[in-house]
């Protein structure tokens, strides 16, 4: 067990470094395009790196439509820059495709597109991808397939009523092949969630809806690597939600805790300042 822990720790260190590198790459992509939800992407980058590079997801970049692949449903479609950068780094498509972010003849818009290799759905209208994810999880049960479905939600997305329609459905139908991860960054477009319409106690809400609730530090790869693997064993009939506490704009101190940066890519002197800040956190390239 000690060896195992050590191994997770050392892997986590490598993967956190990798997250930083990808954060730098993603920031450059968004600065170049002048578009992209940078802060919402930085809050869930470690989540994606843990899922892909931490070998949680069973996916094959050479065969994105492999029938038995795990499905990752990014319901908070505005975090597409984080997913696109991770998918490129994981080999789903060449890294230089990212140069075409929001460009003519490119593959990517600001929000998520289903026709990008490795992406399952089009998202951008909040509250919808989660229901699709539950439908996929139900189909897996009907078809006796063993793959897992990972749904990534934003915390602000939990204001959408359809999230709770799906949550009720998922627990009633014992969708223990559905893992819900909430990027709990506490910040929406205009305000902090607890000042806007309070979401807390969020874990109690999900527990009341019939979920196993795990709350972790969403910037700790280590905590993801400890929390996620046991869920594949389906020791409980309940679906699980992981509430990942994060910081919107993580890695760029000047961007954090400021609603202003929702949905924006920095330009001019801000771009230089933010690039400098994120690089100081240990990015090399």
């Amino acid at each position: 067990m000690g060896e195992m822990m050590k191994s997770i720790e050392s892997r986590s260190e490598e993967l956190e470094q990798r997250s930083h590198d990808l954060g730098c790459r993603m920031l450059q992509m968004c600065i170049k395009a002048g578009k992209g939800h940078v802060s919402s992407s930085l809050s869930c980058l470690e989540m994606f790196v843990a899922l892909y590079h931490g070998r949680i997801l069973r996916v094959d970049p050479a065969n994105p439509k492999w029938e038995d692949r795990d499905r990752l449903i990014l319901s908070k479609g505005q975090a597409s820059p984080a997913l696109y950068t991770t998918l490129a780094d994981f080999g789903f498509f060449p890294m230089d495709w990212l140069e075409t972010f929001t460009q003519e003849n490119g593959k990517f818009a600001v929000h998520l597109q289903h026709d990008v290799p490795g992406v399952e759905i089009t998202a951008g209208s909040l509250g919808q991808g989660y229901g699709t994810a539950a439908g996929i999880a139900l189909a897996a049960k009907m078809n006796r397939k063993l793959f897992m479905v990972y749904a990534i939600l934003g915390d602000g997305e939990c204001y959408e009523g359809s999230i709770w329609e799906t949550a009720m459905f998922a627990s009633h139908n014992r969708l223990n092949n559905l893992v819900t991860i909430i990027d709990r960054n506490y910040l929406c477009v205009t305000d902090f969630t607890e000042d806007l319409v309070a979401l807390e106690p969020l874990d109690e809400k999900w527990r009341a809806f019939g979920f196993n609730v795990i709350r972790i530090n969403g910037h700790s790869i280590q905590e993801f690597l400890r929390a996620l693997p046991p869920l594949r064993n389906r020791n409980s009939t309940k679906p699980t939600v992981i509430i990942a506490d994060t910081v919107k704009g993580h890695g760029i101190p000047s961007m954090c805790f400021d609603p202003l940066w929702h949905g924006r890519a920095p330009q001019g002197s801000d771009a230089d300042k933010f690039t400098n800040e994120i690089q100081k956190r240990g990015c090399y390239e």
Partner: peptide
């Protein structure tokens, strides 16, 4: 036969997921 309850939006969404898997 799947009954989602009085939740029409979820009916469409669950249906979309099932359809993606070939149903």
């Amino acid at each position: 036969f799947v009954n989602v309850g009085i939740a029409e939006q979820n009916a469409i969404l669950i249906g979309s997921g099932l359809a993606l898997e070939g149903k």
